[in-house]
């Protein structure tokens, strides 16, 4: 086994070169390159964590904004509905008022017209009475030759008409 057979001749060379090579590995790679690689990995982990936190914050903010937007919308809708109702109520009231006014005017006109009509019919009735009295007096004169006064004829006609 050369490892043991040669040990006395080679141990110095093995130790010497191994210490040089391992020292180089330890100081340039282990102490030099490794911390840089690890720092880079740590920086990446931190960046990922930060970005995730930022994204989470942005999401929460967006949620908040959405909620408040919805609330605004609901409030605006409520206000608009109120205004619409108000306007509707006002319009209805207005219409009612105008209707009542028109009604009243029409009533007045109607009453006046009725009064006129009553007057006219009374006048007509009166003129019919006088015409009938005259006619009655004429008829009496012609039939009997007796002279009937206008007053007598009128009272007679009145009596007949009152009987129907």
């Amino acid at each position: 086994m050369p490892q043991i057979a040669q040990i006395l001749e080679t141990y110095a060379s093995q130790f010497f070169w191994l210490l040089i090579v391992f020292g180089l590995i330890y100081f340039t790679i282990g102490k030099g390159m490794l911390p840089k690689i690890e720092a880079n990995m740590d920086a990446r982990d931190r960046k990922i964590a930060d970005d995730l936190a930022a994204a989470e914050g942005a999401r929460a903010e967006a949620d908040n904004l959405g909620d408040s937007g919805e609330a605004d919308l609901a409030a605006a809708r409520l206000v608009a509905q109120g205004k619409a109702n108000e306007a509707k109520a006002k319009a209805a009231k207005d219409a009612e008022q105008r209707l009542a006014k028109a009604d009243a005017e029409i009533g007045v006109k109607l009453a006046a017209a009725e009064a006129d009509l009553a007057k006219a019919s009374a006048a007509a009735m009166a003129s019919i009475e006088s015409v009938a009295a005259e006619a009655a007096a004429d008829i009496v004169a012609k039939v009997s030759g007796a002279k009937v006064s206008a007053a007598q004829a009128a009272s007679a006609v009145k009596a007949v008409m009152a009987n129907g």
Binding site: T10, A12, S13, Q14, W17, V21, I29, L34
Partner: peptide
């Protein structure tokens, strides 16, 4: 002391070189 450069020393240096190359690729 006999610290001759041997085939063992050569392979230690090859290991050093390979390891350095590997790490350099990750830098």
């Amino acid at each position: 002391y006999d610290v001759s450069f041997t085939n063992s020393s050569l392979f230690m240096l090859i290991v050093l070189g390979a390891l350095w190359l590997f790490m350099w690729g990750g830098m």
